[in-house]
Nucleic acid binder design. Structure first.
Length: 231
DNA sequence: GCGACAG
DNA sequence: ATCTTGTCGC
């Protein structure tokens, strides 16, 4: 059955109302969870298309552990919320939900999101917001830092250092490939930080980004998908 | 006041 | 996110 979001709140909010809502919802994020019997891992990519002022979301579902794509969907919506650092989910999640609800086949057991999770000023990044709406395990995987301080992780794939803010560990700075900038991994919902880091690393191939997110990003902005012999 | 600031 | 310029690896 299709992934469906709970209606926890309305979407036509002002930036101020959005901040207040984040503070109300953040305590509901579950910061633990181990994941057993993972069969499918989804990646979510979000972005803005200046031409047409559209918010774009792409989702790819990959089988575990083969990482073969089994489902994909793209959605574009007229952008209805400004880009404000810390409020990205209010701009992007409507398109993400539209794409998720169009997916065919069995639901993913884990969703890797393009953006922060707990590594957010109010501990409620896009991955937390999406995880709470769906009540499913999510992980935030961001290419650059939003908040927090950290030391540079070691040079080898899998090396990581804690990301700290306000006296707590809010994420991990993970070297996913030698010679490239690290990624910022944080809890989204229903996973522990070690689980979030483990699955980010488990989904790596030879690239900087975990394969489900790469597949999603490629879907909307890369070359057209090559259909396999079974399609 | 000045810089920082997911996508 | 997007754009531009310069450098490096395959």
């Amino acid at each position: 059955m299709p992934l469906r979001a709970r209606t926890l709140h309305p979407w036509g909010l002002s930036p101020h109302e959005a901040r207040v809502l984040q503070e109300r919802l953040a305590p509901h994020v579950i910061r633990e969870g181990r994941l057993e019997r993972v069969r499918r891992v989804a990646g979510v990519d979000v972005g803005f298309e200046e031409r047409g002022r559209l918010t774009r979301a792409a989702v790819a579902v990959l089988a575990w552990p083969t990482l073969e794509p089994v489902a994909r969907a793209v959605a574009r919506c007229p952008t209805a919320f400004p880009y404000v650092p810390g409020l990205l989910s209010f701009r992007e999640i409507p398109a993400v939900l539209q794409a998720l609800e169009a997916l065919e086949g069995p639901d993913p057991d884990l969703i890797l999101c393009d953006g922060q999770g707990l590594a957010h000023p109010r501990r409620f990044g896009l991955a937390c917001h999406l995880g709470l709406l769906l009540d499913r395990p999510t992980v935030g995987v961001a290419k650059t830092r939003l908040v927090g301080t950290h030391e540079e992780p070691g040079p080898r794939r899998g090396d990581w250092t804690p990301l700290r803010d306000g006296g707590e560990i809010i994420g991990a700075v993970v070297r996913t490939r030698e010679g490239v900038r690290p990624l910022y991994v944080s809890i989204g919902h229903r996973v522990s930080l070690p689980t979030a880091v483990r699955w980010t690393l488990a989904c790596l191939t030879r690239y900087r980004l975990p394969e489900p997110i790469r597949a999603a990003h490629r879907l909307a902005s890369g070359p057209p998908p090559r259909l396999g012999p079974g399609a």
